[in-house]
Design a protein around this nucleic acid. Structure first.
Lengths: 223, 223
DNA sequence: ACTCAAAAACATGCATGTTTGTTTTTCGTG
DNA sequence: CACGAAAAACAAACATGCATGTTTTTGAGT
């Protein structure tokens, strides 16, 4: 996809949004096609990696001609950018859903997070994140989202687990531990650096560790 | 670099090794040039990422013409393969050195491992490892090395820390925890998913955790 | 008739592998 | 010891393939 420098003029062609709910059938179809293209992009990134994701490939994956695709996005970069935003919103939605599901149980959060990291979305996101290391253009898009996710995660999570309220730094450490370890596991599984059999022990260990860090343990009943 | 399918004939041009220690000045210079090319490859991977590492770039980085470079390696793939092997041996050497330095201190091993992960070699290795996910050719080269490293690490480490001898599974968990968490941290630092300020707390936490898992803690003096 | 989605055709740039040519080192031989 | 052939290091030029962005053409819906 290359993401080659793109002259900053020529904004991407947007489907004209009719003001008050007035979507023409065309603009609706256009939106669907756009969504299909974004999905195809993510699927391609998962399948062949970001580096080998080409515009023809995405078009083929979406069942469209390249010309049609460039009609909607005009640019490889625009497509990637849209895919990144989509992945980011997926991540936010998943977290919100998780927070609603296992209410006020930090250890359940571990399992939920782990399940999230098994999904293809994480693979795509990591591909993009690593590519961004050497791609200023990509980094400019990704960095703010990373920060936003961290912030939202922290502020939402701390509100969700009142027993940690008095030890915010400890809470941050616990959350960072969970995220970092789980992501490390997910990546090491992808790259074959870790044995599948170690997953379950690690998850148990992490749960135990977080349980021990919980302030509620030290207040009510010492142990 | 693309790593495109390469017809399996045409072996790489090797410098003729004189039998009994008889290195001609040519073969010596050739070895030096090869080393320079491998180094240049790794530097390129770190600088621009594996995907954007091209043969002209490597040649330029090494201060050679592309023709000269293809004289030594014949192939982009051969170059990458050599770089992988080099990185693998670097990793083994580093581990061996670490094992010699901080003798019999598992917590010191944490710091040493962390220092290793800060080096550019790790970046290059991870770039290659992730690329291998979608590159059968690369995976065929990398996978055995991953396994070999894991094996050597485990067998060497268990011999190094006799106090763990009775709890090998616990030892494996501890080592996996250390490796996975540290790598997760390193990667999340690279991708900007983690705050630099969290590094020190995490390292301390990991050290403490490993100390508590150590069987010696429970035998001699409880607590 | 007009607009926009979709497709096709076109031109450019770059990385790759191949081929050919030039300089330097090695080694046998007179 | 010198000279010339062989081989290897190095360099440059060539042809191909593919991805990219641009432009033009077709077709469907309002």
């Amino acid at each position: 996809m290359a993401l080659a420098a793109v002259r900053s003029g020529t904004p991407a062609r947007q489907p004209r949004e009719r003001g008050a709910g007035g979507q023409t059938q065309q603009s609706l179809k256009s939106a669907q096609t756009r969504a299909r293209l974004i999905d195809a992009t993510i699927r391609c990134i998962v399948k062949v990696g970001y580096a080998n994701t080409t515009t023809p490939q995405v078009a083929a994956e979406a069942g469209l001609s390249r010309g049609a695709m460039l009609h909607h996005f005009e640019n490889g970069q625009a497509l990637i950018k849209a895919a990144i935003v989509e992945l980011h919103e997926k991540r936010l939605r998943a977290f919100r859903r998780a927070a609603d599901t296992d209410n006020h149980d930090t250890t359940a959060l571990v399992r939920t997070q782990w399940r999230q990291l098994q999904k293809p979305a994480f693979v795509a996101f990591h591909e993009l994140a690593l590519a961004a290391r050497t791609h200023p253009e990509l980094a400019r898009i990704l960095q703010p989202l990373q920060v936003e996710f961290r912030d939202r995660f922290n502020s939402q999570a701390v509100a969700l687990f009142p027993e940690w309220q008095d030890d915010i730094v400890g809470f941050n450490v616990a959350m960072t531990l969970s995220q970092t370890l789980l992501e490390g596991m997910a990546i090491n599984l992808l790259t074959g650096a870790m044995d599948e059999a170690m997953v379950e022990p690690m998850l148990c260990l992490l749960e135990k560790q977080i349980r021990e860090m919980n302030p509620a343990m030290h207040k009510g009943h010492a142990g």
